[in-house]
Each structure stands twice: as C-alpha cells, then as structure tokens.
Design a protein around this nucleic acid. Structure first.
Length: 695
DNA sequence: TTAGGGTTAG
C-alpha cells in the first residue's frame, strides 16, 4: 500500500472555496473504498488542506472507522501526522478496539502520554473499554487513578466506563461503589452495572437491581430487559418474567428478536415449556439462538422426543445448528439412547468443523458413555482441547457405569494431577466407580476425603452410594448402621438401595425393616414390595411372599409390567413378558426354545427365584424364559443379519436370570448385545457383561 | 465519540 506523500509547505495556504471546509459529510457519504479515500487524500494534499487538523482527522476517521479494509492506510496516515492531537489519538484507539486489538489500544495510549498529549473523557472511556476487553483489572485501576489525576474521574462517560471495567473484570464491588456514588444515573450507567452482575452470574443481584430501578422510576431499555429475563430464568422467578412479557406486549417490543428469545428461554427455564413454544411459534424470524433456546427448553425438562423433533424442524427450516444447539441435542440423544441421531451429530460436527468447545466435547463424551460406547467416549474425551472439571467428571462416570471402575479411579487420579478441583458431582462418579468395582475401603476413603480434603459436604446422593457400596459387597449390617447413623434423614432412595442389597444377599430381617421404612415414605411404589417378595421367595418363604403380593393387591398397587424394546430396520418393536401380540409370535417363541437349549449346552442353569409366584414349580423355568428381554433378543436374532449387534432397552432392571442367559446368548450366537435397563447399560460380549455382575 | 443483549452439560 502506498500513501500519498505529505508535503509540508512553510506556510499553510487557505482552503480553496470549492472544497468544503469540513469534508466530514462528504467523506461519510461518498467515500466507500480505499481508492476513493486515496483520491480525496491526494486532493487535500494538492490544495494544502491536509495540513488542517480537522481535515486530517476526518480522513483518519474515515479510514480507521468507516472503511473496514482501510486500517493500514489509517496507520500510515496517523504515523505521518506531524503532531497528532487528542482527537487523532482517540480515533486510533477506538479503531483498535473495533478491530479487537485492545493491546494496541493500550500501547497507543502510553505513546500518547509519553508525547504529553492530554487525554480527554473520550480517551478514558475508550481505554477503559480496552481494559475490560483485556480483562485487566491491574491496568484498569492505573487508568482510573490517571483519570482522577486529570480531573476527569467524575465525568459521566468516564464513570460509566469505569463501572463497566470494574464489574466486567470481576471486581463487581468496586463497580457498585462507583455506581452508588453517582448522583444521576442514565440507562448506560444502570446497564453497565447489570452487565457486571450478568458476567459473574449474580442473578439475585440482577433482579434486586431491576426492582430498585422500578421503584425509582428509572428508565430502562431492551438490553436491560434481556438481562433481567435471563436472571428470572436462572432463578425460576416466573412472576417478574410475566410482568416483563406484559411490558413487552404493551410497548410493542415484540419485533426485537433477541428480546423474544429471552422470553422463550425464561418461560422454558421456569417450567412453562408450552408457553415458551407458543411464543416461539409466533416469532416471525427464528435464528439459531431462538431454535437452540427452545430445543434446550425441551431437553432440560426431559421432553427429549420433542427436542429431537424440533431439531429436525430446524433443519427443515434451513437454519444451521451451532455447537450450542448440538449440546442440547446430544443430551436428548443420550437420554433416549438415540444412537443414530447422536452419531449423525458427531459427523456433522466434524464435517462443518464446529468448534470443539468444552461443553460440546463433554456432551459428546456423555452421549457415547450413556449409549455404552465407552471407547468412542474415551476417544472423544482425548480430543477435547480444553477440558474442565465437568468433562473429567463425565468420563469418570461413564467408565464407572460401563463397568470399568478401576479405570474410572485412574482417571480421577489423572484429573487431580492435571490440577482440576473435583466437585460434588465428581465424587458421585468416583463413589459409583468404587461401587461398581466392589472397592469398599477406597469408597470409605474417598467419602471421608470429601469433607476433610476437599471441603465438600456429602449430600444424600453420596450417602446413598455408600449404602450401595456396603450393601453390594455383602456388608448389610454395616450398610444398615450407616443409614441409622447418617446425619441427614434417609429418603426412600437410601432405603430402597438397602432393600436391593438385601435381595442380592438374601437378608430377610433388614429387608423387612427397609420395606417398613419405605412404606412410610412412598407407600405406593410397587418395586419395593416386589423386592421384598423376591427376598422371601429366594429364602424359601413362599407363603410370606404370597401374603405380601396379596397385600399389594388389597392396596391396589400394581406391578409395573416389564417391557423391552428393540429397533430393527428403524422400527421399534415392543415386548411384554409372555406376550403373544407380535405378528411373528410363533417364530419368536420357537427361537426362545432354541436359545434355551443352546445356552444350556453352554452351562446355563435357570434362576427361577424371580419367576411368577403363581406359577407351578415346573412352569417356573418356562415362565422366566418368556421374560420380555428374552423375547426381544429372540426377535433380534431372527430379524437382524448375522453378527450384527443387538440393542435392547428395558423399562425396569434386568432380572438375574435374564442377565445370566444374555451373557451366554452373546457367546453362543457370537453377538454383541447391549441392554439398557432403567439404571445403566449392559454390554454383553463373549459370555460376560461390562457391569461385572454389579447391577 | 460512553455500556450492551438472547441459546450450553448429570
């Protein structure tokens, strides 16, 4: 790039009459390219007007701020100005902020001070903005002191920028002090304060500040409302959100897309998902953020099918998803076990080169882990460029729930080595790893380290997993003592965990006590009665088992029927135990018989403890062989190509017999079988299961 | 010529 040479005559000639004395308007309206700029510059040199400060500054402003590609030209112009004034420095500082070079802005400010050019209030507000961008409280404070020294510390512009600088650099308290001392506050002042609270996620403060505003009758704008709506959503304050919606309607602000998106988000987060959807449907233009807000609304309230449907609508509407959209979509896929959609998302992410943010990476890891693809989860985890405590927690949990407890603990050590601070969720993952691997002593040690080393108060979930750790390993009495002595009142989940351990280890006495407690807390939970009745049955006390079942009948408590589903050629097929509704029913039952014969040859002994109680002794074996998951597997063997993996979902937990049978089926038929029950995935392969029989 | 917006995970 060449710049017209500056000619410095001895005497500045008067401006020619045909050239406007202030060419600013001409430049603003006419000059759209570097070429035109150069022509005008040449003209000013020819006429000598380039030596007038105002003309030179107008040229500088035009090149630095108005023509995006002319920054280099501006730099040369500036360098060739013999003695740039404050205005010229201000233009260049603003230009550096616009081009996202806050460091250059600060250097220029230092050059300005070195040249003894006095900064004005505009210089200070701009340079403070650079400090906010740099997140540098240190430089910001020095600029503050210098502004005070120049007698500009009480200028409204400077104060507004100072409040914003302090608040957005993390020193909200100092920002608030300045804010409180201001005699008059305009919208800019209030919004600067809101921005600070927003940045540090002090939602309560946002709402309190807005209530102050309303009380004082201060003026606010759409940006204020967006901030407050975000806070209402995070805090679940529906009434204030509704008041804002009324205000938006009355004042005709619905054309502001961002504001309506905030309303959608607020309603969704406050649990009014359908109201959010109505607003969303009314929007004339929906951008990626609006779609993402609505999809995440469904996903947050576990309406995962609707989330995925809306995602498909979004694609039909031709709106390209971004990495934020994909986080909610993957979370829904993980809950539903929607493997194909989730895999498609991953390939889309790669194809479109979406940014592998820590949230997106973590959502992918979680998706793969929840679908039982722990190798993909590990591979994806390794590729997250910047991990955080959440990503580590998700991979630890993923390993634990896929039966790799020891490996999960190894990852926990790696997490600590990498200097990430574990949180209460991390300890849920770590303790479940101990539970899966049967590591009682380690579990106790980690549990105690929570409060002693990491200053994290154990929550009821942590107590629950400890009960599980003791109970699974057969230490039923210790588990019971632990429950009795825990400082939090045990809830139904704690007693149910204990009851389930009593079932594994056939402990009738503590089992009975657990049910007694459970009936007080959740009298209509059918699974609890079934558990105790199974304990009675496996201890040979069939009469007690039957009495309990009759009590259930009298109370009108119905057992949730077991239901397994399997996807074949994109169609879901559902089966209930001893169900003959399927069109291929005859073939399916034949296949079951064949399966039973073949796995018996491989050493299968039926476990009839969980057979129907009303079945005769000789019917029990047939009864368990007709459990819903066996029917689903038989159907899968008939209809899928040889060696294809079978993927079954079950609404309840897999029973012992089905677990044992499925292991052998995987070996005899050389099939990988993945069963997702209500708690976790079981990955059956070559006669064993990823859960290591801890389920 | 000052501030500045909405969507993210168990």
């Amino acid at each position: 790039m060449t710049v017209a040479p500056a000619i410095i005559p001895d005497k500045i000639p008067p401006l020619p009459p045909q050239f406007p004395s202030n060419p600013r308007t001409l430049l603003l309206q006419q000059c759209k390219s570097v070429r035109e700029l150069r022509q005008i510059h040449a003209h000013t040199i020819k006429t000598g007007s380039s030596l007038h400060h105002s003309t030179a500054e107008n040229l500088l402003e035009c090149s630095a701020l108005l023509i995006p590609s002319a920054m280099d030209y501006a730099l040369k112009l500036f360098d060739e100005m013999p003695q740039p004034h404050t205005e010229a420095f201000n233009i260049m500082i603003r230009a550096f902020i616009l081009t996202r070079s806050p460091t250059s802005a600060v250097y220029l400010f230092l050059r300005m001070l070195a040249a003894s050019i006095n900064p004005d209030k505009h210089t200070f507000s701009c340079i403070l903005k650079a400090c906010s961008r740099l997140n540098s409280l240190e430089i910001g404070k020095q600029v503050h002191a210098y502004a005070a020294k120049c007698g500009l510390g009480c200028e409204e512009f400077v104060l507004n920028s100072l409040i914003h600088m302090y608040a957005s650099c993390g020193d909200v308290g100092n920002g608030r002090n300045l804010f409180d001392r201001m005699p008059e506050r305009g919208i800019v002042t209030w919004n600067a304060m809101f921005a600070g609270y927003f940045k540090v996620e002090s939602w309560q403060e946002v709402v309190a500040l807005f209530r102050d505003m309303l009380m004082l009758g201060a003026e606010f704008d759409e940006v204020t409302l967006i901030t407050v709506l975000t806070a209402c959503g995070r805090l679940g304050i529906l009434d204030l959100g509704q008041w804002i919606e009324g205000y938006v309607q009355e004042n005709g602000l619905k054309s502001n897309q961002n504001l309506v998106t905030s309303l959608v988000d607020m309603y969704a987060k406050c649990g009014q998902v359908d109201k959010a959807r109505n607003l969303f449907d009314e929007m004339v233009l929906r951008d990626v953020v609006a779609w993402s807000a609505m999809i995440s609304g469904y996903s947050q309230w576990n309406r995962c099918r609707e989330a995925l449907e809306l995602f498909h609508d979004m694609q039909r509407a031709g709106v390209e998803p971004n990495e934020v959209t994909m986080v909610s979509v993957l979370s829904s896929c993980a809950v539903l076990g929607a493997l194909e959609t989730g895999k498609w998302v991953h390939s889309y992410v790669r194809k479109k080169q979406l940014k592998m943010t820590v949230n997106l990476g973590t959502a992918l890891v979680d998706f793969y882990a929840k679908c039982g693809f722990i190798l993909n989860a590990l591979g994806t985890f390794a590729k997250i460029p910047q991990k955080n405590a959440w990503s580590w927690t998700v991979i630890i949990q993923g390993l634990a729930s896929n039966g790799q407890g020891e490996e999960a603990l190894r990852f926990f050590s790696l997490m600590l080595e990498a200097d990430f601070q574990p949180n209460y969720l991390t300890f849920i993952a770590v303790l479940s790893a101990c539970s899966h691997a049967g590591l009682v002593d380690e579990g106790k040690r980690f549990f105690h380290s929570m409060s002693y080393i990491y200053d994290i108060e154990p929550r009821i979930e942590h107590y629950g997993i400890m009960v599980d750790i003791f109970g699974r390993s057969g230490m039923i009495q210790e588990a019971y003592n632990f429950v009795i002595e825990m400082p939090i009142k045990p809830n139904a989940i704690i007693w149910r965990t204990l009851l389930a351990s009593c079932k594994i280890h056939k402990n009738v006495e503590i089992g009975e006590e657990s049910l007694k407690q459970l009936v007080k807390l959740e009298p209509r939970h059918s699974g609890d009665y079934i558990l105790l009745s199974n304990i009675y049955a496996s201890a040979g006390r069939l009469d007690d088992a039957l009495t309990l079942r009759n009590q259930m009948k009298e109370k009108g408590i119905k057992k949730t029927p077991g239901c397994s589903s399997i996807e074949v050629d994109g169609v879901m097929h559902e089966f209930f135990a001893e169900d003959s509704a399927h069109p291929l029913s005859v073939e399916i039952y034949d296949k079951v018989d064949e399966m039973m014969i073949r796995i018996k040859e491989a050493g299968y002994l039926p476990d009839i403890a969980e057979a129907r109680l009303d079945a005769e002794e000789d019917e029990k074996e047939v009864s368990v062989s007709h459990h819903s998951e066996k029917l689903a597997i038989a159907f899968g063997l008939i209809r899928s190509p040889p060696r294809a993996a079978l993927r079954v979902s079950k609404n309840l937990r897999v029973c012992r017999d089905c677990h044992l049978a499925t292991k052998l089926i995987s070996k005899v038929y050389e099939r990988e079988i993945v069963v997702r029950d209500r708690n976790r995935f079981h990955h059956f392969k070559d006669g064993s299961c990823s859960c290591n029989d801890y389920w």
